[in-house]
């Protein structure tokens, strides 16, 4: 841990020896404490356990030992879910019944309005703002099944933004998103961070969030291998910095050479 020892405030999220997995089998175990205002990049090769940790801390998969606390409360009794926004790694879930982008993004406010609530003017404004932020303004009334893959990824980001959460947990928010939209999203995340929003972001390269990330956490083989300030490596890093995984490390080939953060500092 590189956090200063001066009595920290209640962390946003605190994992202590927290094990997560599928069907009772542990796939990743992590110790991680994130304070308000941090921008934490989770890095690691395919299959290293980044998504497992993310989903585990949100209570979406099996919690197998250890502790998970949100804002000082054990996950099981944490009710203020509107404080946390989530962007999954996948595309938008298919909608067999037509649903407009507006309707899907609006569901990002469902934690705020509660079980029997209705969407009100403030909700509609937040939704409009979120959709504008991801640059899909003219697609608001489009059925989501007519959106391209990258547009669907942006819709997922908009859904999380719409909730006006204090913490955003983002699983590869840039994957499949074109360069221009990446820049726009990065600018949004920069603004959010500047306004004190805590970001926990799974990334394959820090690229678009260069200078925004305050800390990087490298995952390998289901364990935290490094946790500290984002070290920088020149673009001449070896292609696969992961010594264990024989998995294909995915690159988006159309990026110009940006300084890349190595998996190992």
């Amino acid at each position: 841990m590189t956090q200063p020892e001066a009595l920290p405030p209640v962390p946003v999220v605190r994992l202590v020896g927290a094990g997560f997995g599928y069907e009772g089998v542990v796939a990743a175990r992590a110790d991680l404490v994130v304070q308000a205002g941090e921008v934490v990049a989770l890095l690691g090769a395919n299959g290293s356990g980044k998504s497992t940790i993310i989903k585990g801390m949100l209570g979406l998969i099996d919690h197998l030992g250890g502790e998970v606390e949100w804002f000082g409360r054990p996950m099981a009794s944490f009710r203020e879910r509107w404080r946390v926004g989530y962007v999954p790694q996948r595309e938008l879930a298919a909608s067999p019944v037509p649903a407009t982008l507006d309707e899907v993004v609006r569901s990002g406010r469902v934690a705020r309005i509660g079980l029997l609530g209705r969407y009100r003017a403030a909700d509609r404004r937040a939704v409009a703002r979120a959709i504008r932020t991801v640059g899909l303004d003219e697609r608001r009334r489009t059925p989501v099944r007519q959106l391209s893959g990258g547009q669907q990824r942006r819709a997922l980001v908009a859904r999380a933004l719409a909730g006006d959460a204090e913490v955003l947990v983002l699983d590869e928010p840039f994957a499949g998103v074109d360069h221009e939209s990446q820049e726009a999203l990065a600018a949004t995340f920069r603004d959010l961070a500047a306004n004190g929003v805590t970001l926990i972001v799974v990334l394959h390269e820090v690229g678009p969030l260069e200078g925004v990330v305050t800390r990087s956490v490298c995952i390998d083989n289901g364990e935290v291998l490094y946790d500290g300030p984002p070290g920088q490596r020149p673009a001449s890093m070896p292609d696969d910095p992961d010594p264990h995984g024989g998995h294909d490390h995915h690159h988006s080939g159309d990026h110009e050479q940006r300084p890349r953060l190595g998996l190992l500092p």
């Binding site: 879910r81 509107w82 909730g163």
Partner: peptide, 12 residues
Amino acid sequence: SDEEFARASGLP
């Protein structure tokens, strides 16, 4: 529409 997201939103 999206059970995982519903769970992340704290819906029962």
